[in-house]
């Protein structure tokens, strides 16, 4: 890992730590917990990537964490800004989390685990991308809040690149993906922090 990558990851970790410390205090307790989990994953992942390098991405736990991140972020958003969908999304988040853990840790599920992953990752990514956009269009939130949608789109791009790489059908070469990853992580975190600053 190059010094540039380490520097980018360090800034990502610092931004995530900033958001956990100062950026979510004014929200409701459930959303605070959800956002703490999401930004906490970003913080600890950045530190582990700095320490252990990109090889840490080979760990099976990474797939689970990479899904919990958008799942918890989208759950926090739904809980805070779409009260009518709270119960439904809570059920989806809980079931999705359990399904991912079970299908990832037990080897018998084969391709089902990929389907579950794509479904949970896809839905939560869409919620992060679409919900802030809708709220801005409705005029419920200021225009800057749309940065969260940008973050959602970036997490989708990162997730796709890594998923295809792990499936053995990479869209870009492994080296290109690893060069892009710290930039994507930083931009995504900055977009989330920026978006929440408008709440």
């Amino acid at each position: 890992m190059s010094p540039r990558d380490r520097a980018l990851l360090l800034v990502t970790g610092l931004l995530a730590a900033y958001q956990i410390t100062f950026g979510i205090d004014q929200m409701c307790i459930t959303s605070i917990c959800a956002y703490t989990v999401a930004f906490g994953i970003l913080l600890v992942s950045s530190l582990l990537l700095i320490i252990l390098g990109f090889e840490v991405l080979e760990s099976p736990i990474v797939v689970i964490l990479a899904t919990i991140l958008p799942l918890s972020l989208s759950f926090g958003l739904v809980w805070q800004y779409f009260p009518a969908g709270r119960d439904l999304y809570f059920g989806f988040a809980l079931a999705g989390l359990l399904a991912i853990i079970i299908t990832r840790l037990l080897p018998m599920f084969g391709k089902i685990s990929t389907v579950v992953l794509a479904l949970v990752h896809g839905v939560s990514g869409l919620v992060i991308t679409i919900l802030p956009l809708v709220l801005v269009i409705q005029g419920s939130m200021p225009a800057g809040f749309v940065l969260l949608s940008l973050g959602g789109a970036l997490i989708g791009v990162g997730g796709l690149l890594l998923s295809f790489l792990r499936l053995g059908k990479p869209i870009l070469s492994r080296q290109q993906i690893l060069t892009l990853l710290p930039v994507l992580l930083l931009l995504m975190t900055a977009a989330y922090v920026g978006g929440f600053a408008f709440t």
């Binding site: 956990i20 410390t21 979510i24 605070i32 930004f39």
Partner: peptide
Amino acid sequence: GYLRVLIV
């Protein structure tokens, strides 16, 4: 806020 970071 600080305690949350410490917990993470």
